[in-house]
Design a protein around this nucleic acid. Structure first.
Lengths: 200, 200
DNA sequence: GAACTTACGTACCGATCGGTAACATTGTCA
DNA sequence: TGACAATGTTACCGATCGGTACGTAAGTTC
């Protein structure tokens, strides 16, 4: 449910608002939000500034919209991994992590857009930060729920461990692009889950 | 009377360069490098801009200097934990992680200055990024060496796992200040180390 | 006491930042 | 055709960005 322009019937052409959001998605992710000016966003979208400000009240709100789009994409990948292994949470999370360790190898990979935004905007009331915080809380809950589903004696411990592992993978990839510690994330998760389940 | 070079014990006013670096250390860490202008750095230091540019060729180089200071402080904490448990690498890393999980509780905690800088500056040749990348590589090596010292059958796996765990802790603390997954980092590490050592 | 060095401040630079006013163009429906 | 709203454009705003030319005050050396 993207909140950009309303999908009015008969209106199929990619409108300015949509193109701006796609442009922001690309530039904000690759280079960071603070590093990219609105001028560049609209130029990359092939429009001009007033078109941006008619659809978004401010750059901060555009950043928040970018993160909402980013979150959609994230859950699409996550739920796809889950859907591939119905009723088997351990296989679900391993599927996702194996895909992740593949994706982080790409030279264009720049970690998690949400995490990056959180670091760029420490102010607790920033629109972009609010989106990120809500998302991370959802992800953490989801991981703890999966840990419980696995039968972990302490679901919060295993869920949080997996969360830390994921977060560490996302962020350290930006430092070690290939041959980084992220290559070991799947094996580490396997080890961790086995240890957590075995310690019943 | 006055000695050359070393400052006399009664010298009350640190030089401008020193005050600027301390100011940058505080502001860059708390609010981010991009978010803080040089004007604010020098105002907070009680000096003026030309004093900054006499000591540092650019803001980017000041940021790099801040990170070098930050790295010193990091290794001081790390080596202190190591020094408390001679010959016992497992106790060393656990000591450090327990201290870390305490420190991240502080409301002023803003994660790892190096990691944050890496995210703020994706350009591979940025001075600040170079400092961070070198530091993370050193840390990773150190952790792998400690894993080897512990007798881990696959030291790189355990070392990288601990690295991911640490990095995840540092970054996720910025989202969940208290009651976050970071509270479980020590227990997770314990679990992980036991599993890695036991799987011989 | 002139000459030099060191250390710091005043005032300013062009470029770019996020954001806006005013106008031109287009498509839709009466 | 004409009214109207949406979407596009040109040109501009004040604020702030990183960075600098240049003057000033103090200590040192001869």
């Amino acid at each position: 449910m993207s909140s950009i322009g309303s999908q009015a019937p008969g209106n199929e052409q990619p409108r300015a608002a949509e193109r701006i959001l796609r442009s922001a998605r690309e530039l904000f992710y690759r280079r960071g939000i603070r590093a990219v000016g609105v001028e560049e966003v609209v130029a990359n979208a092939g429009v001009t500034k007033p078109s941006l400000y008619r659809s978004y009240p401010s750059k901060d709100e555009l950043a928040a919209a970018y993160l909402r789009l980013y979150e959609e994409e994230f859950w699409a990948r996550f739920d796809a991994a889950v859907g591939r292994h119905p009723g088997d949470p351990r296989a679900q999370i391993m599927d996702y992590l194996e895909g992740l360790s593949q994706r982080v190898m790409a030279p264009t990979y720049r970690g998690c857009g949400m995490t990056n935004a959180t670091i760029e905007y420490p102010e607790p009331d920033h629109p972009a930060r609010r989106v990120s915080e809500a998302h991370k809380a959802r992800l953490r809950e989801r991981l703890c729920a999966m840990a419980a589903e696995m039968g972990a004696p302490d679901p919060h411990l295993l869920g949080d461990s997996l969360f830390l592992l994921m977060e560490g993978t996302l962020v350290s990839t930006q430092i070690f692009h290939a041959d980084g510690p992220s290559a070991n994330v799947a094996r580490t998760a396997e080890l961790l889950i086995s240890a957590a389940l075995g310690a019943a």
